[in-house]
Simulated assay, not measured.
Amino acid sequence: MPRLIAGLSEIADGYDVILSDVWGVVHNGASAFAGAADALGRFRARGGAVILITNSPAPSRIVTAQLNELGFPSSAYDAVVSSGDVTVSLLIERSGQSLFHIGAPQETGLFEEVAARDGHAPRFAPIASADFVLCTGFIDFFSETPEDYDERLKLIFARKLDFLCANPDLVVEVDGALSYCAGAIAERYERLGGNVIQAGKPFAPIYDRALTLAGAARGGAVERARVLAIGDAMRTDIRGAAKQGFDSVLVTSGIHRDALHGAAEHAAIHAAALQQFVLDFGLRPSAAIAQLVW
């Protein structure tokens, strides 16, 4: 059973670096969490480094701007690394190939970043002639479901195209409600037998970048045993931490809230439900906390 803690201060002395998730931990898509800002800021004030690590398909500079808009203070973190950053590198590796894009057409920051770093933007093509597929999310984030993409996925699979997923999350909490992410579409392509390349958590490249940034913030190498990962998703945050050998804290009021707290808005975490929950997942976070606070 994970240790139930009331605040980060109970365990902070054991760590030099925190890798904190963003959505569901420091904000909910509509407003920043003051308690999380305070907790991370206090950890930094004690000499620790904080890297925000997110499966957002946007480059980190855009994530940083979004944090500013939501009122999350820059004093609470040292740097941001995003799934979008990893995706940019993957797109540059495929420079010269054409892609079929699944995602909101107005979200162009990823492609602008590729153009700035590679000298030219990616080439787009229909499924029939594309060299691979890039999925950054849903075309209509608020109304579509993963099933809406099944016919397109069958056409993509018929051509055996690689499917690059810029956000491995299945769902994200937006102002108290859950909305689907690119990972939910990628999961359906995998079920067809398609080859999916994931850019973010729980896979190694995003953690490699985060540790590099943490080392730069601290001015030296990072000891993995002194790294703490914080997140609200067992499938990505806690699994990724386990694969990297990091301790982890599960924020229970995020996407798993209903399973761990029940329907009541301010219900406390149910210890028996948490124990069964981690057994069902086959993953054991080091600790669990209702919300990230000091």
Rank of each mutant, 00 (worst) to 15 (best):
V251A: 08
H120T: 08
V63N: 02
Y180Q: 03
P126G: 13
E69L: 02
L228G: 06
T212S: 10
T236R: 13
V81M: 06
I51K: 02
L153V: 03
A37L: 15
N195V: 10
E112I: 08
I5H: 02
A204R: 09
A216W: 01
N167M: 15
T236F: 00
A32E: 05
S89V: 05
V227Q: 12
G137F: 04
D280Q: 09
A158N: 04
T236M: 02
E10Y: 11
A34L: 11
V196H: 00
D16L: 09
G215L: 14
L52Y: 08
A115M: 13
F281K: 08
I92K: 03
L170A: 04
E265V: 15
S248G: 08
A214I: 02
A130H: 02
L213V: 04
A12G: 13
I92Y: 01
S143R: 10
L279K: 07
L155G: 12
I18V: 15
A216H: 10
R224V: 03
E265Y: 07
I238F: 10
G48H: 04
E173T: 13
P57Y: 05
L178V: 11
I11Y: 04
Y15F: 01
V196G: 00
A49K: 15
Q97I: 03
A36N: 11
G231P: 01
S89H: 11
N167A: 09
G109L: 01
I185G: 15
V22I: 15
V26Y: 01
G183P: 10
A233S: 11
D131C: 06
I289Q: 10
